[in-house]
Every structure is written in C-alpha cells, then in structure tokens.
Simulated assay, not measured.
Amino acid sequence: MAWFKREKKGISTTTEEKKEAPDGLWNKCPNCKKALHSADLIEHKYVCHYCDYHLRVGSKEYFEVLFDRDSYTELFANLTSGDPLSFVDSKPYADRIVETTAKTGLKDAIRAAHGKIDGHPIMIACMDFNFIGGSMGSVVGEKIARSIDYSLKNNVPFLMISKSGGARMMEAAFSLMQMAKTSAKLALLAQAKIPYISLLTDPTTGGVTASYAMLGDINIAEPGALIGFAGPRVIKETIKKDLPKGFQTSEFVLEHGFLDFIVDRRQMKAKLATFLKMMEN
C-alpha cells in the first residue's frame, strides 16, 4: 500500500554525520523574531538589520563599539560589593554576589575605562544589566565617583552609559546614598567646566534616572529605550488611568524635553566624536 510507505526524497544524512550549530552563532531579534547571525550583529553594532531594534548589550560590547581599537584601559576592576546589612531574602546577598559574578564574569553592575573616541580622550563608565538587573549599589556609586575624579585629574570628558532597574534593595540606604554622592561629584565636574555626556539605554529607571542619568550637559538616548522613574505598570495602577501611547520610551521623553538627542547605536561613535570636538573648541 503506497499510503503506508515513506519514500526517501532529497539528501539523507545519518545521525553520526549531522553537525550541530555552535552555541552563540545565532540570535533572535526580540522585536521582529527574525534570526540574526552573530557576525551580522557585531557588524551592525548589535542592532537588528531587519527592524532596527537595539538589542540589550553590556559594557564589553559598548566599549568595543565606542572606543578606538585597542585604545582603552579598564580602571577600578577589583571593586566588589560588601554585605553591610547581612541581607537575606530567598538567599543571602553575599551568596548572590558570588553566584552572579561566576555567571556573568563581572564584579558588579558597572565597568569603567579610559581611552579615545576618534582620537579624542574620554573616560567612560558603563552599566551592565546582567548583574542583578543593573542595580545601583555602593560599588556603582564608587566607580562613578572615581571615574569623575579621573576626568577631573586628567581634564578629559566623562561619558556615563546607564542601563539599570534602579537602586539595589539589598544595600538599602547605602544604595540610595549613591544618588547624592554621584550628583555631588558631577557638580565638581561642572565647576571645572569638563563636559559630561549621559547616554540612556534600555532600560534606565529608578534612582539612576533620578540622579546622574539626567544630569548630563548633553542627554542622549538610544531609540526605543525605556526611560522613567517608576515603571509604566506601577504608574498605571497608581493613577488608575491608561497611559499615552509610547509612554516612557526615549521618543516620548525627547518630545517632552528631557532629552537632547536620540542616536542610533550605529552612528553613536561618530555623533560622540562630533560632540567631543565641539566641546574641545
């Protein structure tokens, strides 16, 4: 009976001869769901070339995108968080730090480095969302403060790349103190007339938005980034009203005067170089 026969068509490959695709070779765009080859992602600065969606990336990728090749040096790399409150939730905070460090290879939610962008010296601090949601703890505040001190000492501009869920609850008041600490340091930078550029990426929320993220001489953001203090769901439940379309996107924030520019990541280095050249003059 032909109905019960399976005819072989095309090329048949035995199980032993099949080859699996290496891990990390392909990614899927969270927006359009299309497959993205890793080499294409790197070439397009981790932006989907189908729909222009900006994928979330960490400090390593931002340093590679912005700094001139092999021009940067990381600073303050060995700073790690303590456990001032002996905080315990589902697990001790100290254990969570150890586990997250092992998983991500990061010491905390921020890295700092100095180098050059198109030949212009600059100090950059960049947050990493993969480390406990990019939460702002004492190490984040200290690294920003030390980065600003480096800019003051060497008379170079400072770029802050924010990507955070807000304050780190496990450090309570120690976390909230970083808002005042970093803002005071930025005031010294302003007094010295050294440029400060703030780049807000997806997401930038909570105490980070309420402090250093919004204090730049120039505030810029990537397209479609979530920017705000409380999240849209919390606001909607509080005011009991529907929110405007696109609420808390970088486009909405720009329209209401809290941003100066929205810049595509693929043009970010050139745009920053233009800012730096203008400020030098």
Rank of each mutant, 00 (worst) to 15 (best):
Arg6Tyr: 12
Glu7Asp: 05
Lys9Cys: 11
Ser12Glu: 12
Glu16Ala: 09
Trp26Phe: 12
Pro30Ser: 06
Ala39Arg: 12
Ala39Tyr: 12
Asp40Arg: 10
Tyr46Lys: 06
His49Asp: 15
Tyr50Ser: 05
Cys51Met: 11
Tyr53Lys: 08
Val65Leu: 14
Arg69Glu: 15
Glu74His: 04
Thr80Val: 14
Phe87Asn: 02
Ser90Arg: 08
Lys91Met: 14
Tyr93Pro: 06
Asp95Phe: 10
Thr100Cys: 04
His114Ala: 01
Lys116Cys: 07
Pro121Cys: 06
Ile122Cys: 02
Cys126Tyr: 09
Phe131Lys: 03
Lys143Leu: 06
Ser147Ala: 13
Tyr150Pro: 11
Tyr150Asn: 05
Lys163Ser: 04
Met169Ala: 04
Lys181Tyr: 07
Ser183Asn: 07
Ser183Ala: 13
Lys185Asp: 04
Ile194Gly: 00
Leu200Pro: 02
Thr204Cys: 15
Thr209Cys: 10
Thr209Arg: 08
Leu215Pro: 01
Ile218Gln: 01
Pro223Gln: 05
Leu226Asn: 02
Leu226Gln: 03
Gly228His: 00
Gly231Arg: 04
Gly231Thr: 13
Gly231Leu: 12
Arg233Lys: 12
Arg233Ser: 14
Ile235Arg: 02
Thr238Trp: 08
Asp242Gln: 06
Pro244Phe: 13
Lys245Cys: 11
Gly246Tyr: 02
Gly246Glu: 02
Leu254Trp: 01
Asp260Thr: 08
Lys277Pro: 08
Met279His: 04
Glu280Trp: 06
